[in-house]
């Protein structure tokens, strides 16, 4: 237990001149909830996109202790990363809107089913082994729908579910890939306080029952503080603090990044000039 699950070393991501993530290093432990927080534009989602293969990092080493042993994520094609046991959700929900909730969860088990269907050839002729595999996949989907309280709406189009349930369905879909690390990008965004509390409970439950690690980007501080085992604070792409919720709560650097200092000092040179000019013209 408690072995490192993901080791990020010197991760840097540049877009042209913009440095979105700057020399970030941290370790996420197995069976722990690691939260990445920071003001808007701090580079949190970029970190996720590097981890899940949507961006190729400019510099850095991302070691993931996955299903088949350690793997360097920065060298993998994006679509192969989930096979090692990383699943993710998206900030703006990306469900297959015109497919049913159940189908969404079955698609998540694609690679496994694809092998079971003999890459379509055997499945086409209704081979027994494939039918069993499909039944098992539906069972797993049923389990997660039940856990999320979506069982009665299994045959709804995902797009017609209410917002909160879409968020849950997306997490269920990620879980159906049987990950070792679940990456959640602002799962509480748009949820009301009661739903947020339920979500917090669910995440703790997933951590403990499924025994997997969770990497969490979140703005809802009450939730982050309540459930995280470890928190990493980003600002302008750099890590400015790391520690337990108690340590972070009292860290002066974090407070400064969130609340800022006296405003004038933070204004860039040009803006101050513009302001002066406007004042003069008026």
């Amino acid at each position: 237990m408690n072995a490192p699950l993901l080791e990020v070393e010197h991760l840097t991501m540049r877009f042209g001149g913009l440095v979105a993530v700057d020399d970030l290093s941290f370790t996420a432990m197995d069976q722990r909830i690691t939260a990445i927080i920071g003001p808007n534009g701090a580079g949190k989602t970029t970190v996720f996109n590097c981890l899940t293969g949507f961006y190729r990092p400019t510099v850095g080493r991302l070691t993931f202790h996955g299903r088949f042993g350690p793997v360097l994520l920065e060298r993998e094609d994006g679509f192969r990363i989930p096979r090692h046991g990383i699943a993710r959700t998206f900030q703006n929900i990306r469900l297959f809107a015109h497919m049913t909730a159940l189908e969404n969860l079955v698609v998540a088990q694609h690679n496994h089913l694809m092998r079971a269907s003999g890459y379509t050839v055997l499945g086409l002729f209704g081979w027994k082994g494939y039918r069993a595999a499909e039944r098992a996949a539906i069972e797993r989907a049923r389990y997660w729908l039940d856990r999320m309280g979506l069982l009665a709406r299994a045959d709804w189009d995902a797009g017609s579910l209410p917002y909160g349930e879409q968020r849950k369905l997306e997490i269920a879909r990620a879980m159906c890939t049987q990950p070792k690390l679940l990456c959640l990008d602002e799962p509480a965004a748009g949820l009301n306080p009661r739903e947020t509390a339920e979500l917090a409970e669910l995440l703790v439950e997933i951590r403990d029952r499924e025994q997997i690690g969770i990497l969490l980007i979140e703005h809802d501080m009450s939730m982050v503080m309540r459930i995280s085992d470890q928190i990493i604070v980003l600002d302008y792409g750099r890590k400015i603090a790391e520690g337990t919720p108690e340590q972070i709560r009292t860290d002066p650097v974090v407070i400064k990044a969130y609340l800022g200092e006296a405003e004038d000092e933070e204004l860039p040179e040009e803006v101050r000039e513009d302001l002066a000019r406007l004042g003069g013209g008026a």
Binding site: T52, G53, F54, G78, F79, R80, I81, P82, R83, A87, R88, F90, R94, L95, F96, A97, H98, M99, E103, V106, V107, A108, H110, N111, L113, M114, S117, Y119, T120, G123, L124, R173, A174, T177
Partner: peptide
């Protein structure tokens, strides 16, 4: 079959498909 569902899923959202390990 899985391949057919993957086609429809790709039609809906290619990025989500990649995140589920489907080779687009």
């Amino acid at each position: 079959l899985p391949i057919g569902r993957a086609w429809e899923a790709l039609r809906e959202d290619e990025i989500a498909c990649k995140a589920l390990g489907i080779n687009p």
